[in-house]
Design a protein around this nucleic acid. Structure first.
Length: 612
RNA sequence: GCCCAUGUGGCUCAGGGGUAGAGCACUUCCUUGGUAAGGAAGAGGUCGCGGGUUCAAGUCCCGCCAUGGGCUCCA
């Protein structure tokens, strides 16, 4: 047994943790520095070391393959690692395999990873030919910097690294992309290669399988297959079309939510799609959000297409005089909005230029804020439970571009915190992430395969009521300013349907499925019965189709199965005679018969599950 | 908007200077079949759009549009 730096030296140790939980690599460890060892496995600490070293290995491979390589930063991120760099030739997707191959060759050379220290001045001298390294150096405040070396390859780096390349066997380069130097939009664009690495082959395989699964669930693929929605090149980017099946799905979602709003005291309203630019000047949108707005001119007057629905709701509120007895007033609208998103960010239904928000504005007194925010949180909770989403909340504070006094912001932000803290609801903070008119709570949901999405939002706003001079008459007969709470639960139908599609992999529950039942009559003699049943279902708002085209029975069953419809129902002589149905459970590939009444009852019970 | 890649019938893809191909889907006919592809015939494409090079351009070059992966931002 060998003892090394106070620890038993094992083939399996790639680093240590000190008393503060910092990772100390084997190159940096000294006698008595550390509390415990980091073994070569898939713990967060081990992966951080492994991935960081894999990034270096990739850099070494790139150095050997391409002309004039210069490297910027190569950090470990949530999903793996990346390295930003510049070379004198073009690198594309196909090159990733070549780089991977070179990385594997380098591993076989069994280089040790060594570390040495030099002064910053020496480093500036050493990397004089490399302006990216100079950029990195200029960001380092320390007077001493460290360099890691493997074979002929040296890189300025803080570490930590594995002791030798043999720990880097299970990696995969996943994609190549452009990235601004330092994330600055005005700076040069570097090449970025992303990769993942694990301690064992199985974990890498599991990760790749998860990626495949995400690809299989991609809402763009499923949306096309199921004919839910489409885009049209000639019509423009980011402008979705809802095909009949998608519109049915969306309609069901709208109906479920409509009922849920009414029960909670919301009233439906609707504002115009386009308002005079002066309205947007008053609201502050023109100044703070103008870059994202579509503007036009009518009869010499400037108009703006609405990017948000608040202004319309404010006008409706102001139309009649309101008493403190009326508050809170809750207006809701499935509001169609247009936002000029940059072309590069458009992504299926998840990021579009025209979308419909499930938007509502609650006008209330400052004293009512906490209770109203809580009620919205409860609303969010029931919606997310319905679809089986886990979620977390995040409070976002004042951004750089904002309207209103700091004191007002402070009060609103505190109101949100109080509402959550007072009810022991956990949240995280996003400093500077608020809307320009107020702070907000963002709801982030986690889908069936663990991905996170931002959907709902609750925003407290003291500013717009002030700007539009919104008032109510208080009990002492004076005019007071109400507070506005902006909120959306799904966020937008587009995004939410996209997320739902991936969450369910297209296998929507009965209460959402665009087509809920498919009847397959065995011969022409059974079509009449199918038609009669279909009408009965329609009367109950259940969408059913009949597959009676001239194909073999097996073919029609296969086609029906592939539609991801909850109920495939076969109708033949037996069913017609006994007024029954033969149901195929497509998940279990089993079948069972029900009489007509029980069938209807079962369907209605399934639909009932969609009530909130 | 920026970097990289891609664009051939409704869908998935082959063809890479010399007169457009396959499978699925679609239409018609035969077949009336009890639980995942019965058979035959047919229709459908100015190869994303616009320029250029060439005797000749899906094919090579340029610009634009759209899509995909990122950067940045957000519902």
């Amino acid at each position: 047994m060998r003892i090394f730096k106070g620890f038993i030296l094992s083939e399996n140790i790639i680093g240590y943790l000190d008393a503060q939980g910092n990772i100390i690599d084997t190159q940096s460890a000294v006698e008595g520095c550390c509390e415990r060892e980091i073994a070569y496995d898939n713990t967060a600490e081990a992966l951080e070391i492994i991935r960081h070293s894999t990034a270096h290995l990739m850099a070494q491979a790139i150095t050997e393959l391409y002309l004039k390589p210069q490297f910027f930063v190569g950090p470990v991120v949530d999903e793996g690692f990346y390295y930003d760099f510049r070379v004198d030739e073009k690198i594309s997707e196909e090159d990733l395999k070549k780089i991977e191959k070179k990385m594997k060759e380098l591993i076989k050379k069994k280089y040790k990873i060594e570390k040495y220290e030099i002064s910053k001045a020496e480093a500036i001298e050493k990397f004089a030919q490399d302006d990216l390294k100079q950029a990195v150096l200029s960001r380092i405040p320390d007077e001493t910097v460290t360099v890691y070396k493997q074979g002929a390859f040296e890189d300025l780096c803080r570490g930590p690294h594995v002791p030798a390349l043999r720990f880097l066997n299970n990696f995969k380069l996943t994609r190549i992309a452009g990235a601004y130097l330092g994330g600055d939009e005005n700076a040069e664009m570097l090449t970025r290669i992303y990769g993942v690495a694990f301690a064992d082959r199985e974990s890498l395989k599991a990760y790749m399988t998860m990626m495949e699964e995400a690809k299989r669930r991609d809402h763009r693929k499923i949306g096309a297959e199921m004919e839910l929605f489409m885009f049209n090149e000639a019509s423009g980017a980011g402008l979705p079309f809802w095909m009949p099946k998608g519109a049915k799905l969306r309609h069901k979602l709208e109906q479920i939510l409509h009922k849920a709003h009414l029960i909670r005291g919301y009233e439906p309203v609707r504002g115009p799609e386009i308002l005079k630019a002066d309205m947007w000047r008053t609201s502050g949108h023109y100044a703070c959000y103008g870059d994202n707005m579509y503007l036009t001119e009518i009869d010499g007057q400037e108009y703006g297409i609405k990017p948000m629905n608040c202004i319309g709701h404010i006008q409706i509120f102001k139309q009649t005089q309101k008493s403190y007895r009326d508050l809170p007033i809750k207006y809701y609208e499935y509001g169609v909005v247009h936002r000029h998103e940059k072309s590069g960010v458009l992504h299926g239904l998840l990021r579009v230029r025209e979308f419909t928000q499930d938007d509502a504005h609650i006008f209330c007194t400052p004293e009512q804020i906490a209770a109203e925010v809580l009620e919205v949180v409860e609303f969010v909770d029931s919606v997310m439970k319905l679809f089986g989403f886990e979620y977390t909340m995040e409070i976002a504070t004042k951004p750089e571009k904002a309207i209103g006094e700091d004191a007002v912001w402070e009060m609103a932000t505190q109101g949100l915190k109080d509402a959550l803290e007072g009810n022991s609801l956990p949240y995280t903070l996003d400093e500077g992430g608020g809307a320009f008119y107020g702070p907000k709570i963002d709801i982030k949901i986690t889908d069936a395969i663990g991905r996170k999405w931002q959907c709902g939002t609750i925003q407290v706003d003291f500013n717009l009521p002030e700007r539009f001079e919104v008032e109510y008459v208080d009990e002492d007969n004076t005019r007071k300013r109400p507070v506005m709470i902006h909120r959306a639960i799904l966020g937008s139908f587009e995004r939410f349907v996209g997320i739902l599609t991936e969450h369910y992999a297209g296998e929507f529950p009965m209460f959402l499925a665009p087509v809920q039942v498919i009847f397959v009559p065995i011969t022409d003699d059974h079509v009449a019965y199918a038609k009669a049943l279909r009408l009965k279902l329609l009367a109950e708002d259940i969408d059913a189709e009949i597959y009676d085209k001239n194909d073999s029975l097996n073919k029609r069953i296969r086609t029906a199965e592939k539609q991801r419809v909850p109920y495939v129902v076969i109708l033949g002589d037996e069913e017609v005679t006994h007024r029954s149905v033969a149901i195929r459970d497509r998940r279990k590939k089993e079948q069972y018969n029900l009489n007509e009444d029980d069938f209807m009852l079962q369907l209605k019970q399934q639909i009932q599950k969609g009530k909130i």
